[in-house]
């Protein structure tokens, strides 16, 4: 009758099996396929089963790939920086200044725009930032500027602004959760021990909020590096990022091995960045989100 844990474990496995098998079939199998593809050779109309590292060599040496890759990383890093910096004060405000019964409403207000059509939101930024867009036409109409501003026009800046908007709630929520977890008496204790408000913020609040900030960084960085729509719509396809390149290789040029190698490299970069941040997070505090 040696049951006990076994019976519990069996039930657990039985329950987790459907979603796990689904993920295995729909996610793991395709990922393994492209991992395999990335080591094979591209032939005419088909993939040749010859093992090669040529795709990776090309990924790391091709100047176009490198430019796109660097651009993707820079844009993602910039978006992450801007988003998190802009989001922190808002999370701080909602956590520390808003009365407890109003917090849910604030969070609700912050999340609503996120649930509206992503494509249309991105497009509207084009409208706002465009040559005859809201900002330029208003500013010229008011006589503040004579010529439309061009630095916000269809370039990396406009991509950054658009993505910073798209991922705002993703940054605010984890920071908010981390701030909420801070024991308020710690802050009072800091003040009680004669520290200034700024010092208390710097020495108590910020370190304790750090896990949330790091989570926000990851949550913003990962999807932006794979963003396809914004460069397509805002950049007009003229400033492609890694996702666009993967799509072009996979479909338009039908070079699946190279496309796969690109995808695997992108995943590896994402994984590397995640691991680095998780490591920093662990060092900061044992608090986990």
């Amino acid at each position: 009758m040696a049951k006990g844990l076994d019976a519990q474990a069996r039930q657990g496995y039985a329950l987790i099996a459907p979603p796990f098998l689904y993920a295995l079939l729909i996610l793991a199998a395709p990922l393994l396929t492209i991992l395999t593809y990335s080591f094979l050779t591209d032939g005419y109309l088909e993939v040749v089963r010859d093992f090669t590292l040529a795709n990776y060599v090309q990924v790391w040496t091709d100047p176009i790939v490198r430019t796109v890759m660097m651009r993707s990383l820079t844009v993602s890093a910039l978006v992450t920086l801007v988003t998190v910096l802009l989001a922190f004060p808002v999370a701080y405000y909602v956590s520390f200044m808003v009365r407890p019964e109003k917090k849910a409403t604030w969070l609700f207000l912050i999340t609503i725009p996120f649930w509206t059509s992503y494509l249309i939101r991105v497009f509207l930024w084009k409208v706002i930032l465009g040559y005859n867009g809201v900002i330029n036409s208003s500013l010229t109409g008011l006589g503040i500027i004579d010529e439309p501003l061009t630095f916000i026009l269809y370039n990396v800046n406009s991509i950054v602004i658009t993505l910073a908007h798209a991922y705002a709630p993703f940054a605010i929520l984890p920071i908010f959760v981390a701030l909420e977890k801070i024991d308020r008496s710690l802050l009072e204790a800091g003040r009680d021990l004669g520290e200034s408000r700024a010092m208390t913020f710097w020495r108590v609040t910020l370190p304790l909020a750090m896990p949330g900030v790091l989570a926000a960084v990851l949550i913003v960085f990962i999807p932006t590096i794979g963003d396809y729509v914004t460069p397509e719509l805002i950049g007009g396809g003229k400033i492609p990022m890694i996702a666009n390149l993967i799509q072009v290789q996979m479909l338009a040029l039908d070079n699946r091995p190279l496309g796969s190698a690109l995808a695997v490299t992108a995943m590896a970069i994402v994984a590397l960045v995640s691991v680095v941040f998780l490591f920093i997070n662990r060092r900061f505090l044992k608090v986990r989100l």
């Binding site: 987790i16 979603p19 796990f20 993920a23 295995l24 729909i26 996610l27 793991a28 199998a29 395709p30 990922l31 396929t33 492209i34 593809y37 990851l218 949550i219 990962i222 999807p223 590096i225 794979g226 963003d227 396809y228 996702a243 993967i246 799509q247 996979m250 699946r256 496309g259 796969s260 995808a263 992108a266 995943m267 994402v270 995640s274």
Partner: peptide, 22 residues
């Protein structure tokens, strides 16, 4: 559980492309 939650942090283009290829 981590594996099942993976699509949350995986760029969608990669999910889409790998699935499409298969």
């Amino acid at each position: 559980m981590g594996f099942i939650l993976l699509p949350m942090v995986l760029p969608e283009i990669i999910v889409a492309m790998s699935l499409l290829v298969v």
